[in-house]
Nucleic acid binder design. Structure first.
Lengths: 227, 227
DNA sequence: GTATGACTCGTATGGTGTACGATTCATACG
DNA sequence: CGTATGAATCGTACACCATACGAGTCATAC
C-alpha cells in the first residue's frame, strides 16, 4: 500500500454521483476529522470521543476515518495541538515588558485549555506538538532576552510549565463537578475536627480561580525574576 | 438488598470445605482488592487495570469484586488514596523550620506519586481522599503557623499544589517514554530553525528532574515567603 | 478501455464494564 | 433438628469499544 499521507492533499472534483443516494456531507479530510473531534470532546469529554460517534457525526463509516488517521491516539494528538495555537501578544510594538508578555502568553495558554477542558489533562500525556513547542520557544526567548541566565533557563521554564499545568488541570477537573465540590466541602465540614484549618479557610470553596492563578503566578515570577 | 458495606467486617471462621476444590486464596476483602489493584497499576499502568485482570490476579470471579466495591472508579479512588499516606517529618522534635517541613512533605508527596506513576495523573481527576486531605491540612497548618496571612493562605496552598502536581504529572509522563523523548529531541533538532532557543538549551533532554524540582520549589517559596 | 490508486465501508475479532440471577454456605432462630 | 436469612461468590449475557482485513466505488492517467 502506498503511504497514506503524502503531504499534499489532492483536490477532488465535485461529485456528480448518480448511483449513490445524495450525501450532503463534504468529503472526509484530516481537518474535518480533527475539527469534529474537538466538537465531540468539548461536548462529551475525553471518554465521549469514540471512533463510532466521530464517524456518526461526520456522516461516514467508522473505518473510513482510518484512511486519514493512524489510530485513535492520532486523533487525540491532532485535536490537542489544534487547540493550543498562540497568536501572540496584542500590540505590534516591540515591547520591553518581558514580564507582561510572559503573563499574557501563560494566561492565554490556560484560557485555551479551559475552553477545552479535556485538553489540559491530555497535554502531559502526549507528545509535544508544534503549537505547544512554539509556546515553549517563545517563552524561552523572552526569558533569555530578559536576562535569565542560561544555567537557570530550564528550571525557570519547567517551573512555569508546572505551575500552569497544575493550575489548569486542577481547575478543569474541579470545574466539571460543582456538585462534587459542594459534597466534598460538606464531607469536610462533617470532619472539621480532622481538618480544621482547611475547613476554616474554605479551601475547597474558594472559587476565584482566575485571581488565584494570577496571584500565584506573580509570586512565582517574583521568585524567578532575574536577580 | 442490605447495605453492602456496613462498616465492621465480619470475621469468617476458617473454611473446612470438602465439596469444593481447595483454594489457597484468602477470602476477598476491600483491602486485598486495593492492594492488588496497586500492584496491577504499578505493573501495567492506568489502562492495564481491568476488572477481569484484577479478578484473575485475586483468584476470584470478576463479579465477586462488585460485592466489595461499587465500580471501577471506586477501585481507582481507593488505590489512589492508599498510596498517598504521609507519615510526617523524620524528627520528633517540634521543629521551627517551617520551610524545611513544607519541603519535606512536598518532596515526599512527589516521591510517593513517582513510585506509582499512574497516581499523579489520576489525582486531579478524582475526589480528594482522606490521605490527601491530611496533607493539605498539614500544609495549611504549617504555613499558617509560619505567618502566612489568612487572606493569602489559599493562594499559597494552591500555588504549591499546582507546582507539585504539574511537576509530578510531567515527570511521570515523560519518564514512561525515554525513547519518545529522544525521538522528540531529534525531531526538534531537525526543526532547530523553528525552535532555536529550546534546542540550544536542550530543554527536553535535561534530565535532572529532582534537582529542577527542588530549585523551582525554592524559587516559588521565595516568592511566597511571608513578607 | 483499462489500470491505478485514493477513498469508503461492512464484517468480524477480541477486548471492555457491569446488570442480573443462580448458587453456596455460615449463622440465627424456631 | 430444620429452615430461613443474608453474606459472598460467580457464570452468563449485553452493549459498547478499537481496529484488522478485504471488498467495493470512483476519478483520473495512460
Amino acid at each position: 500500500m502506498a503511504a497514506k499521507h503524502s503531504g499534499a492533499r489532492i483536490k477532488r472534483s465535485q461529485r456528480i454521483s448518480v448511483v449513490q443516494e445524495p450525501r450532503s456531507e463534504p468529503p472526509l479530510s484530516r481537518e474535518r476529522i480533527v475539527a469534529t473531534a474537538v466538537e465531540l470532546l468539548d461536548a462529551q469529554g475525553l471518554d465521549g470521543l469514540t471512533m463510532r460517534r466521530l464517524a456518526d457525526r461526520l456522516g461516514s463509516g467508522v473505518m473510513s476515518l482510518y484512511w486519514h488517521v493512524n489510530n485513535k491516539e492520532d486523533v487525540f494528538d491532532l485535536a490537542l495541538d489544534s487547540v493550543l495555537e498562540y497568536r501572540g501578544p496584542p500590540q505590534m510594538v516591540e515591547s520591553q515588558d518581558w514580564r507582561g508578555e510572559v503573563v499574557h502568553m501563560l494566561e492565554d495558554w490556560r484560557a485555551s485549555m479551559l475552553r477545552h477542558p479535556w485538553s489540559a489533562s491530555l497535554l502531559p500525556r502526549r507528545a509535544l506538538g508544534p503549537n505547544i513547542l512554539s509556546r515553549l520557544e517563545l517563552l524561552s526567548k523572552t526569558l533569555s532576552g530578559a536576562g535569565v541566565a542560561d544555567t537557570d533557563l530550564n528550571v525557570t521554564i519547567w517551573s512555569l510549565w508546572n505551575y500552569v499545568m497544575g493550575a489548569t488541570i486542577t481547575r478543569a477537573s474541579f470545574d466539571l463537578s460543582d456538585d462534587d465540590r459542594a459534597a466534598a466541602q460538606q464531607r469536610l465540614t462533617r470532619l472539621s475536627e480532622r481538618y480544621p484549618t482547611i475547613e476554616r479557610s474554605r479551601l475547597l470553596l474558594d472559587s476565584d480561580w482566575d485571581g488565584a492563578f494570577r496571584k500565584g503566578l506573580d509570586f512565582l515570577l517574583d521568585g524567578l525574576a532575574p536577580r
